[in-house]
Write a protein that binds this DNA or RNA. Structure first.
Lengths: 245, 245
DNA sequence: GAGTGGTCTAGACCACCCG
DNA sequence: GGGTGGTCTAGACCACTCG
C-alpha cells in the first residue's frame, strides 16, 4: 500500500504520474509489460479512478505507456526523447550535449516592419519592430546567423538591456519575463545555397548548402511574439523533430 | 438550452467540443473573447462539469482556446493549422494544396540490414529488411528520392502486392492495415549537396542543395515500423513543422 | 463472463485573479 | 468576496477484448 495523501501542494495525479514513471524507469514494470488496471492503481494509491487516469494520460502523451481498450495499459518500447520536438532553445539543447556555445550580437536596431514580417507578427506594415542579428558559435566555430524580429510595442524596454546580457540568454527567456507564455512555434525549413553575405559570416563557400529556417513563435493566447530568419551551416547543423499523429 | 443527450454512440464531450469549435468558427465567440464558464457550459449542455472540461481540453491542445486560472477560457488568436506538425503523408498534404503528385518505385528488394538501419528498426544487423526506393514527382517534376526500409519479419506479405498499388498509396496506410497504429515519427534534417546519384535522378546539379531527411516511424507501442532516407530538391521542397512547449 | 479501459455524474473543496 | 479554473471523489454504466 503506497497510499498517497495530498500534501505540499503537489496534486495527487502528478505524484502518481511521477511514481509510475519512476517505477518504469527502475524496471519494476518492463517494456511491453501490463501495468495494474486502473481500479487496482486507484486502490493502491488510495485515490479515485479518475485521478489515476489523469496521471496516466500524461504518460500516454509522452509515449511512455499506451492503452488498449478492453485489454490494459502497457509500457511502450523505446524511451525516445521527445525533447527535440519541444520548444527548446539553442543554449539548452546544445549544452545538454556538452557542446560549448556562444553568441555575438551583430546588430540591434528598431526598424519599420516590412510586409512579410508585419504579416507574421500580426502588426501593420511600417510598425516598429526590434531587429536583432546574431551570430552563434558552437565550439568557437560560427554555425548560425539569426535575424530575429520582435514587436517594438510589446517589448520596447528590451532595448535598455545590456548587449552582453542578451547574448548570454535566449530571447525566449526574456520574452517570457514580460509575461508571455510561449506555447508553440511554426518553422519552415529549406535547403539553400549560402549566398555572399551568409557565406562570409560563416566562413564557407558561397554555394555551400545552408539549412534555412523561418520561425514564428506564439504565446498561448495566439499572439506572435517573435519571427526569425535563420541560416545554419549544412555540414555542422542538423535538426531533429518529432511528428505526432 | 442546447441540452445534449447521449446518442448515436458519439461521446458527449466530443459533441460539446465540436459544438464549441463550430461556434468559434462561426464567430459566435470572437478572438480573445471569453467563453462561458465551465459551470455555465455544464448547465447549457445539460452535462456535468467534468464532461465539459474533457471537451475543452482537446481544444486547448489544438491551440484554439486557452485558459487562465481564476480568470476564464478564451478564444486564441490565430487559427494556425497544426497539420504540418502531424503525421501526414506526402499524398494527403500535397493533394490538400491542389498539387498533382505521383510516385514511381525504382527498387523493391529484400536485403540484410546494415548496422544503422538495424539499430533504428531495433533488429539485428543482417536481419532481413524490405528496401523500397521511390522517386516522387509533383506536377510531373521529380522532387524527392525515398529509400524506405521496413522489417521483413513484420511485413513480409507486402512483397506480394502489385507495384502499381504500392505506388498509389502511402506506405503508412499499408503498414496500418497490418494492425500497427502509427503514432509518432522522429525526423532528422540537414542541408547537403546532392551528389551524383541523387543529382541524376532529380535532374539537378551535383552540388545543388538538398534537404536531407532521415525518419523513423513508430507504432504506439513503440515498435519501429519504418526507417527512411529522403532527398528533397532544395528549390522545390520546404517542410513546415510545429514545436510545442 | 470476466476484466479492462471509456465515458459520465453530482457533487466538493481549493487556488487564483480581479475589482 | 465573487467568479473562475484545478483537483478530487465514489460511485455508475458502457464498449471492447479475450478465452
Amino acid at each position: 500500500m503506497t497510499s498517497f495523501t495530498k500534501a505540499e501542494g503537489i496534486p495527487l495525479y502528478v505524484k502518481i504520474r511521477e511514481n509510475l514513471r519512476e517505477e518504469i524507469k527502475l524496471g519494476e514494470y518492463k517494456q511491453g509489460e501490463k501495468l495494474p488496471s486502473e481500479d487496482e492503481l486507484a486502490i493502491k494509491y488510495g485515490v479515485s479512478r479518475m485521478t489515476v487516469r489523469q496521471g496516466i494520460m500524461d504518460l500516454i502523451d509522452e509515449g511512455l505507456v499506451y492503452r488498449r481498450h478492453g485489454v490494459g495499459t502497457f509500457v511502450a518500447f523505446p524511451h525516445l526523447e521527445r525533447d527535440h520536438s519541444r520548444l527548446t532553445n539553442f543554449f539548452e539543447s546544445a549544452l545538454k550535449e556538452g557542446i560549448k556555445v556562444s553568441a555575438q550580437i551583430l546588430t540591434m536596431e528598431v526598424i519599420p516592419a516590412k510586409q512579410k514580417i508585419a504579416a507574421e507578427l500580426h502588426i501593420e506594415e511600417g510598425d516598429s519592430v526590434i531587429h536583432i542579428k546574431t551570430l552563434r558559435y558552437t565550439d568557437d566555430v560560427p554555425v548560425t546567423v539569426h535575424d530575429a524580429f520582435i514587436p517594438h510595442k510589446l517589448f520596447a524596454s528590451i532595448l535598455t538591456r545590456d548587449l552582453k546580457t542578451l547574448e548570454n540568454q535566449h530571447l525566449w527567456t526574456i520574452l517570457e519575463s514580460y509575461g508571455y507564455r510561449l506555447k508553440r512555434a511554426v518553422q519552415r525549413l529549406e535547403a539553400r545555397e549560402a549566398g555572399e553575405e551568409i557565406a562570409e559570416l560563416l566562413n564557407i563557400d558561397t554555394n555551400a548548402p545552408i539549412l534555412y529556417k523561418e520561425r514564428t513563435a506564439y504565446a498561448d493566447d495566439g499572439t506572435p511574439v517573435e519571427f526569425i530568419f535563420c541560416y545554419n551551416r549544412g555540414d555542422m547543423y542538423s535538426l531533429t523533430v518529432t511528428l505526432e499523429r
